[in-house]
């Protein structure tokens, strides 16, 4: 029998270190994800660049959520319920490689992430 999968955001779920977009995280992250989704539209990307604070306010982000977005703290955005597929659009406005976003979540520096997690051979 198959059973439902659920892993809480705090990492105490059945699959360690794996924040799935379940009900709890969906509700918690809705504002951040909705704001980030809007960045698919060129006009919104321009509004975000012109006045990030006002843009975030227009989506009702809390102070904690705004701080995470403004500091590009990927780990914190995910902790607050941000889902990678949405918050990735912030990195399109303000370019950061996805491997660096991965490294930030893993708590590793970029080179360590590339070699130890992804198994890349550098300078080879």
């Amino acid at each position: 029998m198959d059973s439902a999968v659920s892993a809480p955001a705090d990492g105490t779920g059945t699959i360690p270190e794996t924040p799935l977009l379940d009900r709890k995280r969906n509700i918690a992250g809705y504002r951040i994800n909705k704001m980030a989704m809007a960045l698919s539209d060129q006009r919104n990307r321009e509004a975000f660049k012109a006045n990030e604070e006002a843009f975030l306010d227009s989506y009702g982000l809390t102070a904690e959520e705004k701080a995470a977005v403004k500091s590009r703290d990927w780990r914190e955005m995910v902790r607050l319920g941000g889902n990678l597929f949405f918050i990735l659009k912030i990195s399109a406005v303000d370019p950061v490689p996805i491997t660096q976003i991965g490294a930030a979540q893993a708590g590793m520096d970029h080179t360590e992430f590339l070699t130890e997690r992804l198994g890349k051979k550098l300078n080879g």
Partner: peptide
Amino acid sequence: HQLQGSRAGFINR
């Protein structure tokens, strides 16, 4: 692949 959480970067060749 895994893009989120501290297990980000997980690959199982």
